[in-house]
């Protein structure tokens, strides 16, 4: 009988050690993990998985998920702005012995200046709608927030979906976060 035939037990408790230079972010991450049902431990050697926020010297030879840093040897690599569900999925995957990479992490490397295709660029208004959509608001709430009609919101969202080549809100959010990272340039 293959291992896969074993029954999945309900969610296994995972012990996580949170490391990072910024105490505020470290605290916020710890709280998020406790709320999500993880055991947060102080010391890395007692943990199943280490969650490292930003550039931080590696301590233990433990499965590690890194947020927004250059340690490309870590088992889990997520962008700094990864959301709670992505961090949750990555911790569980890495604890189960898998390697996790976000699309942005795969794009890392010495890269060419992006020349954007004008056809697929969003307008300022569409970016506004998208940034509210990322917060998880409904169309109605978006209309109220931006002080525009429901009809206009639907119109903008349709246009955003078309330009990004996506079909669902979740896809649009994921794509938008990647683009925000990839397209922002500093001059």
């Amino acid at each position: 009988m293959s291992n896969a035939a074993h029954k999945l037990t309900s969610r296994v408790l995972i012990r996580v050690a949170v490391q990072g230079v910024n105490p505020g972010r470290r605290q916020a991450l710890s709280k998020m993990l406790v709320d999500a049902g993880y055991l947060v431990s102080e010391a890395a050697d007692a943990a199943d998985v280490v969650l490292v926020d930003g550039d931080c010297p590696p301590t233990e030879h433990k499965p590690t998920v890194v947020l927004g840093a250059g340690d490309r040897d870590a088992m889990g690599l997520l962008p700094a702005n990864a959301d709670a569900s992505q961090i949750d999925a990555a911790l569980r995957a890495v604890a189960a012995g898998l390697i996790v990479r976000s699309p942005v992490a795969c794009e890392a490397g010495f890269s060419q200046l992006r020349e954007s295709d004008a056809q697929s660029l969003l307008t300022q208004r569409e970016l506004e709608v998208l940034s509210v959509l990322i917060e998880g608001l409904t169309n109605k709430a978006i209309a109220r927030r931006l002080n525009i009609s429901l009809h206009t919101v639907k119109f903008h969202i349709e246009s955003v979906f078309r330009k990004l080549g996506v079909r669902t809100r979740a896809e649009a959010v994921a794509k938008a976060l990647d683009l925000r990272h990839l397209e922002t340039i500093k001059l």
């Binding site: 004008a118 969003l122 307008t123 300022q124 970016l127 925000r180 397209e183 340039i185 001059l187």
Partner: peptide, 13 residues
Amino acid sequence: GWLGVALRPVAVP
């Protein structure tokens, strides 16, 4: 040279 801005391409309405 430096301008001190973070920029993102957008479509002009």
